[in-house]
Amino acid sequence: MNSMIYILVQILVIIMAAPLVNGIIKKIKALTQKRKGAPVFQMYFDIYKLLQKNSVVSEVSSWIFKVTPYIVFTTAIAAALLVPVSTKLITQQIPGDFIMLVSILALGRFFMMAAALDTAGTFGGMGSSREAMISSLIEPSILVSLFTVGLISQSTSLPQIMNAVQNTGVPLLHPVYIMVFLALLIVIIAETSRIPVDDPSTHLELTMVHEAMILEYSGRHLALMEYGAAIKQLTFITLLVNILIPSDQLIGFTGIGALALSLVIYLLKVVLLSVIIAIIEVNTVKFRLFSIPNLAALSFILAFLGILQYFILGGSHV
């Protein structure tokens, strides 16, 4: 029963909140450009509209093209299930850890890259090839930074890690966590196709990565792909805020009220991080494709420095 409640709350929160992050980022970008911008809830309307439209499917494509949106969407949700939005929600083990999280996302990515090659267009191949490069370069840094926080709590399970960091005071004052935070921030930018790695708002063949892969999609397929990307983005943000900005220890009581309060604080943290990402996006320009390895290397070095500091300083409160 408990796990059913967990799954329900988790899915509802993630599905409801995911498009909001995109809305906030777009709004802030618009405001900085002295535009009014689309409403914060625009993506919800878009998805609703797309779901009602017919789909255009390439003559060349095979069944891979049609199943991919469903796989991308559901793997994103399954990944989200492994990252609790609130530690007040979870009382027991969940059967999955961050290694599995990486692997589930890899399943979605595998199909997305394959589907991009399925339509026999040039754009798809272009996006697929670039995604292959970026995702492989960023992978070591995800694992090493999560290993660092995992070592501190002696577990690879995310709820355990989140519980353990609540006892460390303010993690972001600790050198280990600062490094991990910065490393994961770069990971989020790369994984969610944001400037400076990719530009989500362009369809220029010189620059696009994620957009190139989903170029052939339309109607409900496109809605699922976009929604999947948004959920994946929120999953990563949840990972970052709940591990490195833990807040549930501040809530002294338990029960429904605590859960509600915890979720409100969680949403505030998500908004905060969306603002940070938007500010980064406003203040940087897109990198040349072959500068991205430098960014990935920076992220890996930060993660590696983090783990070195863990060996030297230990992970507990300073």
Binding site: V102, S103, A106, R109, F110, M113, A114, L117, S128, A132, M133, S135, S136, L137, E139, P140, S141, I142, L143, V144, F300, F304
Partner: peptide, 15 residues
């Protein structure tokens, strides 16, 4: 780190 890189590159290769 090497295992992570290997896994991702293998996925790229098999795509």
């Amino acid at each position: 780190a090497a295992l992570g890189l290997t896994g991702a590159l293998a996925a790229a290769c098999f795509v």
